[in-house]
Design a protein around this nucleic acid. Sequence first.
DNA 1: GCATTCACG
DNA 2: GACGTACGTGAATGCA
Length: 942
Amino acid sequence: MDKRPHLYLVDGSAYIFRAYHRLPPLTNPVGTPVGAVFGYTTMLWKLAEDLHKADGPTHLAVILDKAGRSFRNDIYPEYKANRPPAPEDLVPQFPLIRDATRAFSLPCIEEAGLEADDLIASYARAAAAQGWDVTIVSSDKDLMQLVGPHDSGARIDMLDTMKNVRIFIAEVEEKFGVTPDKVGDVLALMGDAVDNVPGIRGIGPKTATKLIVEHGDLESALAAAPAMKASKLRENLIEQADMARLSRVLVALKEDAPLPLPLDAFKLGEIPPEPLAAFLAEHGFTSLLKRLDAGRGSPERTTQLHPAKTVTVSAAPTSGRTPPAPMPPIDHAAYACVQTVEALEAWIARAQSARVVAFDTETAALDAIGADLVGISLAVGPNEACYIPLGHRGGDMFAQVPQQIDKATALALLKPLLESDAVLKVGQNIKYDINVLARHGVNVAPVDDTMVISFDLDAGGGDDAIWGHGMDELAQRHLGHSCIAFKDVCGTGKKQISFAEVPLDRATAYAAEDADVTWRLHRVLKPRLSDEGATTIYERVDRPLVPVVAAMERAGILVDRERLAGLSQQFAEAIAALEAEIHALAGAPFTIGSPKQLGEILFDQMGLKGGKKGKSGQYSTDQSVLEKLSGEGVAIAGKVLEWRQLAKLRSTYTEALQAAISPVTGRVHTSYSLVGAQTGRLSSTEPNLQNIPIRTEIGRQIRDCFVAAPGNVILAADYSQIELRLAAHMADVPALKDAFAAGADIHAATAQELFGEVTRETRGRAKTINFAILYGISRWGLAPRLGVTPEEAQAMIDTYFARFPGIQRYIHDTLSTVRERGYSQTLFGRKCWFPRINAKNQAERQGSERAAINAPIQGTCADIIKRAMARMMPALEAAGLGHVRMLLQVHDELVFELPETDIEAASAVIRRVMEEAAGPAVAISVPLGVEIGHGISWGAAH
DNA sequence: GCATTCACG
DNA sequence: GACGTACGTGAATGCA
């Protein structure tokens, strides 16, 4: 079976305008400006590389605008009339675009009287009609009208090569709030200043979308105008209806233009290297020329990187995704150690022209906020990597300090590269490197993170053990390579040395390998995002979050050390007193903290009733067991519970938090993991600031130790019952949705439905059952929590399902999808894999089923708050509140620090951003409630 | 290194 | 007749 044809239509004219503004003003050897041409050439090169991918092009054509009038000028003379002339140094580049296209031996189409958009539309429709997939290489919003599936089974999508983003229906909806077939209607209402399409005065994108969503299309919106309440909008809609209709015609694409060349003429074959080489040489594009030459000299490498002579379409496999072509094995001897400014400048130039550079920072410790920068490694291709030592010392006080570039000098040279919009920086857990470099005044952007990409592709995956996303594991899994172990370089335990003391040859092998592996992982993993439908979650949710979370970690939070120390002392005294009491009650001293000893004391020595645990043969002494005993009047049980609470609070919180205060900033900086929870939640470590006590009065005192700087307040904003709201929406449960819409107490409303009356007792039971639903319910799980028999629990579950019928359907549909596909998805498309969903072992299988029921709900909640976080600072800045600091995220809560004078203004922005965070990608049919509080401490903010 | 316990959403 | 139970985390502790 042959691969289905896939036509790429390159919007050449639009591209060079963007490239011109994005790229530096390069000139060729004879002084002609060629910056935009270089960008264009690089793009074609990249597209040619995609030949290897299953969704890469089999056919390709470049479409250009022909100078002069188009048929739209006949309809509306002012069309595009207010365009300023092209910049002086862009004009001579237009003809070079044609040269570049010819150099690749690619067809180039232009037609008088037609704009590129019309030719693209006509070709796209013609190709789709005969069952070809089509990718329009452009980001022009007018062309978004074309995106979507075709009756023939083919699909038309778009590719923005500058942002490296695929645009399909979801992305169009994200931009316009409507499906692609309605984009023309929205454009007609809002008009287009650049093209001088009039639209309707006073209507921008927001109103246009709203009108089309409400009324369905342009004519219906215009027809509905007289019935609207009197307003400027109504007046304009009525008065300028004809302008809107004219605009509708102007923005419509001509989809039936005669095709100057038949589709078959666009078939891609070998790209002859000679004309390309001549063109690259003429314009001084030496980096590309070198790659082309390298390709010609070594055919194996040619096939993986270069659009040279061995590249043929027929070589593409027939179905599925093409595995990335093999890369040469890791060769540590190929790595360079950069010790002079000249060598560094050469590497920076290579990275600039490669446009993608993997990099990694080495530090003296694992603390991004405080550790010293020891070196930086870069990679621009497989085995094309270097290490730049910056802070190495001799191994001991007598050894010589190795030759290194001065740190400040090197960073000043690297800064433009690391901050350049035109160069993508790739890292493995790049949040760490962002934070290290932020301390040196370098703001790394734009970035890709191979760890996060891996997570968005494979969360929860793996056959038995859960797959990790650490570099060593990824290298093993995707590259078949075992990385040099850190402990082989620095040792372990007492003999461990700082990376700063590692000799340069070994440091180079280790550090440059990290960058090389990261570069290779990026090459393998990034294309999978679009192949496997993970682009949206990565590009719209997780990727934008990386710098945001990095900034939160750097901000840290102030804790009151003296107050913590006071609590610690208080707890210690109480613990000592309890210890004496417990030993007296037991009749002998023992280690209270040992569940094993405690179990023997309670159940063997004292002869109390209790059960053994399966595997270890040890008595269970957890809270529920001790509470039961305590309720039966066993004094020692209550004392142990009290002892455990205080011991926990002291060791995990009051002591550990004091130790966590950074000597550099005086604040506590947690580290968030973006890949820590399979559902998409963040997790927090060192210290974990997502489990600070709040549920008991005694624990709550610890929250009071998290304070605002003088003159500031802590502001906490919580989504109220968000998981239950999302469950109501996702399972489409009218009774629950109505209750939320009415602002009711949801547990009370549930109690009313289930038990016919609301008392403290029934509300409590309803709350338990509501949670049980979110977690994947079972009669045996519910029964002990309600203190009823499994049969009684089952009866309540049945009543719940009867009253809220959507729930059972949601559970059933979710499970059958997961069984079939192997993964669940959130409303935003985040996948979570469940490899054990069809396990033979019932316990294992049922465990997976419960997790699979919960994952879309918990994950959607995570997606929503992540979107809020990514939008928060821009929204605050727009309101003149850029100094507000977002400090913490606790799953459904965001914590801020701000001057007390800004409480009101900031609250309004924060509430709006959080409430609207699902849109426009997803419309939730239940309001997302946000509760905001503030005070001098985190405790006081609740 | 593993099991147990318990802090949070 | 089992499974021995709610979902998702991280840290401290005791013990082999």
